[in-house]
Design a protein around this nucleic acid. Structure first.
Lengths: 363, 363
DNA sequence: CCTGGCACTCAGGACAGTCGAGTGCCAGAA
DNA sequence: TTCTGGCACTCGACTGTCCTGAGTGCCAGG
C-alpha cells in the first residue's frame, strides 16, 4: 500500500513536468534512436518490443533500464503505446509519422531490382498493358495492395479528334490524347449531316484543339458554331456538346488494383480489419479521392487515422504522381497496414513511378 | 469391453449390407427430406445440425432416434459428415450436389425484387455501365462475390468498321459490334494511303462484313487484296491483318468483379480459406476459364472440389450465360462458400442474367 | 545522468473438471 | 419390418486455477 501511493505521487509529478518540457524542447537524439529501433523491430517481428530485446538487437550503448526511461517519455508524448501492461511497446500513428518524417530514408532499389522493373515494364504493348503491368509489379515488389490510376484526361493534351459519319444522322466522335488514351462517343444529330460540313467541322476543331490541354478545349471552341450556316448549327452544337462531355468526364477516371490477396497477411484481428478495406477498395470514388490527395510535388504518406476515409483508418497509403515528362498525369501507390516497411515501400513506389514515366515518355 | 465388441460387430455388418443396397436402390424419401433439412439448417445457422434440433425445426413426423438412423445412412453414403464425434452433421460436397440436383428448386425472385433489378439496370448508359451495374447488383443480391464477363467478341456480329486516316501513313481502325463494344487499333501502313483507296477499302470491307459474326469475317475478306492495284496491296493487307488481329483477340475478354468484401463472411478458419480465393479472383485467366465451363444451355453449379482450380476448392460457383437474344454472348455468376443458399443464389443469377439480356436486346 | 536491482503486473499456456449436445445401439412396441 | 424411447458413451466448449515469463516502473547508488 505504501508502495502504491508513493508510485502514484511520483508518477504524476514527473508526468506533468516532462510533458511541459517535451512539448517545447524536441526529443533527445537517443530517444529518437530508440523510436527508430522500436519501429524497425516491430515492423519486422509484428510483436510488441521490450526494452531488453531492444538493447540486444541494436547497439544503443546503454542499458535496458535507460531505454525504459526513454520509452516512458516517448509514450507520454504519444509516439508509442503499450497494448497492455507487461507487454512491449508498439508505435502509434504519431510515432510512425515521426519515423517517416525524420528518421527514415527512402530505400533505393538495388540494381537487380531496377533491372527487373525495367524489364517487366518494357514488355508492355499499349497503355492498358502498361497500367496492368505496373500495378502487378507494384503489388509484387511491396507485397501489398497496389493501386494505379490511368493517366488522367485533364492533364493530357489532344492529339487528334476524329469525326466519322456512320449513318445520315449518326456521327462517331473519337478523341485521342497524347497519353495514348482513346475515347469514343456516338452522337445522334438533330438532322442529316453532310460530309462537307463534317469535314469542315473536323478541320476547324482540330486546328484549334490539337496540342491543347483537355480542360482548355471547350473555351477555344466556344465560338465555333457561329462560323457555320444557321441550318448546320444544331448539328455543330450537338457534336461539340458531346465532345465537351467526353472532355469533362474526368470522373470516368479508372483505377486498377492488384495484390488484394496480400491483405491476408494483415494482422491477427482479421475479419474486422480487412472487411472495411475490401469495401474501400471496391469504391473507385474512394480510391480516386485518396490518390487525388497526393500532392503533385512529392510522395505522400498517409498513416492510419490520417486517412480521411474511415475504413482505411488502420492502413497506411503511400502514393506519388507519375507522368511522361516533369508533370504528373496520374497517381499510383500502395495500401498496407500501418505497420509497414516505409523506407522499402517508398523506394519501390518511387522507382516504379519513375520507370512508368519513362515508358510513357518513350511511347 | 463387451460393449465395444458387440457394437463393432453389428456396425460392420449393417454397414456392408446398407452400402450394397444403397448403391443400387436410391435413397429413401425420408432420408432425402432429412438431407434437405440438414442443408437448409446448416446454411442458415452455419453450425453442425443434430437430430434433435432437426425434428424440432422441421415437421418430419418421426422421432430423433429415427432421424439418427437416417443420418447414419446418409453419412455412410458420403452425403453428410461429422466434423468430430459428438457434433452434428454438415453436408459434404456430394450432399450439396444431391441437394441442388434433386431437392432444391430455383427460388424465383419476388415481384419487388424484380422491379428493383429492372429499375437498377435500366439506368445504364452504355455497355460498360451495364456490366458495372450488373456486377454490383448481383453482389448485392446474393451477398457474395459476383463476376460478369463482358459480352464476348466471338459471338457478336459486326455493326460497322471504320477507317480513318490520321496521318499519311497512319490509319485508325475502329470496330463496332452489335453488343455496343468498340475496339480501335492504330495501323502503321507501309506507304502513304490515298483517301480514295481508303474509302474504297472501307466500303468493300463493310459491304462484306457488316452483320457477320466476328470469327467468320476473316474468311469473307480473304480475297479482298486481289481487288486492288498492286501498289495498294501492301496497305490493304496490313490493314486487314490488324483487323483480323482485333477480331481474333478474344483473349482480351474482360471480366468485372464486385463484392469481394463479402468474403469476410466466409467462415471461421479465415485467412486460410480466403487467401487462395482472393488470388484466384485476381487471375482473369482463372475466372475466364471458370465461366467458360458454363454450358450455353442452362445454369452451371460447381460445388467445392468440383472446381478445377484448386484455390476454389472450398467455394461454389453458380454461373449462367446471358445474351441479347436466344444466344448467350457471355457469362455471369457468383462465387461463394459451398455453404450457400443455392436456391436463392440460383434465382438471383438467373433473374439478373435474364434482365441483362433484355437490356442488351433493347439497346 | 546512467545502471543494477527489486517488486509488481499481467497475458498466455497448461491443466483439470464440468456441462451438454450429440451419437450409436438395443430392446420393445406398432 | 420399422419406429421409438432409453441408455451409456464421447468429446468439444467452457470455466477456473495455477504458473511462468516478459516487461514494466521505481529507487538507491555509482
Amino acid at each position: 500500500m505504501a508502495n502504491d501511493r508513493r508510485a502514484d505521487d511520483r508518477k504524476s509529478d514527473t508526468r506533468h513536468l516532462d510533458g511541459r518540457q517535451l512539448d517545447v524542447r524536441p526529443l533527445d537524439d537517443r530517444k529518437l534512436a530508440v523510436l527508430r529501433a522500436i519501429v524497425q523491430d516491430y515492423v519486422g517481428t509484428e510483436e510488441p518490443v521490450g526494452s531488453k530485446a531492444l538493447v540486444e538487437r541494436h547497439s544503443l550503448g546503454v542499458s535496458p533500464a535507460t531505454v525504459r526511461n526513454d520509452m516512458a517519455a516517448l509514450e507520454e508524448d504519444g509516439y508509442i503505446q503499450q497494448p497492455h501492461t507487461s507487454a512491449g511497446r508498439i508505435p502509434t500513428d504519431k510515432g510512425y509519422r515521426l519515423f517517416v518524417d525524420r528518421l527514415a530514408e527512402v530505400k533505393p532499389m538495388t540494381a537487380p531490382e531496377r533491372r527487373a522493373i525495367r524489364h517487366f515494364l518494357d514488355g508492355a504493348v499499349d497503355l492498358d498493358d502498361v497500367v496492368a503491368r505496373t500495378v502487378r509489379l507494384l503489388a509484387q515488389l511491396t507485397r501489398q495492395v497496389a493501386v494505379v490510376q490511368y493517366p488522367s484526361l485533364s492533364r493530357s493534351t489532344v492529339r487528334h479528334i476524329e469525326l466519322v459519319a456512320l449513318a445520315p444522322a449518326k456521327v462517331m466522335l473519337v478523341l485521342i490524347t497524347n497519353t495514348g488514351r482513346v475515347e469514343q462517343r456516338m452522337v445522334d444529330c438533330p438532322g442529316t449531316v453532310g460530309e462537307t460540313v463534317l469535314a469542315d467541322l473536323r478541320a476547324r476543331i482540330n486546328a484549334r484543339a490539337v496540342g491543347q490541354r483537355l480542360p482548355d478545349v471547350p473555351e477555344l471552341l466556344e465560338a465555333l458554331p457561329a462560323a457555320f450556316e444557321a441550318t448546320d448549327r444544331p448539328t455543330v452544337t450537338t457534336v461539340l456538346a458531346t465532345l465537351f462531355e467526353a472532355l469533362a468526364e474526368q470522373n470516368e477516371e479508372r483505377i486498377m488494383l492488384a495484390g488484394t490477396a496480400n491483405l491476408t497477411r494483415f494482422g491477427h484481428d482479421f475479419p474486422l480489419t480487412i472487411q472495411p478495406v475490401l469495401e474501400a477498395l471496391e469504391e473507385q470514388v474512394v480510391l480516386l479521392r485518396l490518390l487525388g490527395e497526393t500532392g503533385d510535388a512529392g510522395m505522400m504518406v498517409r498513416i492510419g487515422r490520417e486517412n480521411a476515409y474511415e475504413g482505411l483508418n488502420s492502413t497506411s497509403v503511400v502514393s506519388v504522381g507519375y507522368g511522361s515528362g516533369d508533370e504528373s498525369v496520374a497517381k499510383l501507390g500502395v495500401i498496407g497496414p500501418t505497420r509497414m516497411d516505409y523506407p522499402g515501400t517508398m523506394g519501390a513506389v518511387r522507382a516504379v513511378a519513375r520507370y512508368v514515366g519513362q515508358i510513357l515518355a518513350e511511347s
